[in-house]
Design a protein around this nucleic acid. Structure first.
Lengths: 153, 153
DNA sequence: AACGTTAATGCAAACGATTTGCAACAAGAA
DNA sequence: TTCTTGTTGCAAATCGTTTGCATTAACGTT
């Protein structure tokens, strides 16, 4: 399966900057869009390898970095074991997923909060004006004790 | 200089759990409280070493982990080079510092937003009720392009 | 104030995610 | 098809953080 939209956008940007669309990049983009929830580089690598076993992990990293620099994916750092970086293709509709991290057992729980979106709209403009910068993504990370660890304490 | 408040709280918790208050922990706590903005483990280590050159880096890590598990410090992950973990002593007044991360040059800009505090109050309760967990800290991370990178693009 | 238990430290080695140098390869313009 | 040069694969290097272990020292007990 191919996802023309993002791939086309990326190809366009690539061309505009003298870059090249390769089979590897196309594959990584496809896998990224097919996966439903913020995979890590290793996870993408494993998935992509099913289609192209010769793909190399460093290519995945390089591609993700390139995409991140251009705002095509947004990285999320959870504090799960060894703090891998997770990647989401950026949603055109601007929906965000937020997280709760248990400081005791490192469990990560996702949640969405419509109110957050509203607030982000407000803040985005204000911060942008104040510092003259451009905000295109936001992530809220809560931390504390998860239900199990609350029970144990 | 010594900061009795946090140190006393920690000592108390320590005792309650069969732990021991050591010179190293006292030193790390002091340095942590003296530093104004979310130092990394390495930074704390460098500062603390001025008072006790025999202090070991792994002791700093172990102490910070201990403090984090008990909610005495809150960690923040910026996406600066190699994603060090930064630590803040937890504010009793619950004030939070938030961050903007430039996806291009990795610069980190701090900001505070009173509206965020309000929102957090709302969300905290809701999330806590929904998932039966306890939220005691929150961090908002925005990302996009900083003023310089906006200018260059 | 000395004693004993065991938590905490220092040290060095291990870990694991991510990055990088470099030679071989291939995308796409000419 | 050729040529240029951006990209890949490979392997080694980085670097923040963790861990095993022998030694040290905190602090409740004697």
């Amino acid at each position: 399966m191919t996802f023309p939209l993002l791939t086309d956008q990326v190809t366009q940007t690539l061309r505009a900057q003298g870059g090249r669309m390769t089979a590897q990049r196309r594959l990584i983009l496809d896998v990224l869009q097919a996966s439903d929830s913020h995979p890590t580089a290793e996870e993408l690598y494993a998935l992509a390898r099913q289609s192209d076993p010769s793909l190399n992990l460093s290519t995945v990293y390089r591609t993700l970095n390139w995409l991140e620099e251009r705002g095509f994916v947004s990285p999320r750092r959870f504090d799960d074991n060894h703090a891998h970086k997770h990647f989401d293709p950026v949603q055109p509709d601007g929906g965000h997923v937020h997280h709760f991290h248990c400081r005791k057992c490192d469990r990560v729980i996702e949640f969405s909060a419509p109110q957050v979106e509203l607030l982000l709209e407000q803040i985005r403009g204000e911060i942008a004006r104040q510092h003259g910068l451009r905000v295109d993504d936001a992530a809220l990370v809560l931390s504390g004790l998860c239900m199990d660890c609350v029970a144990k304490s």
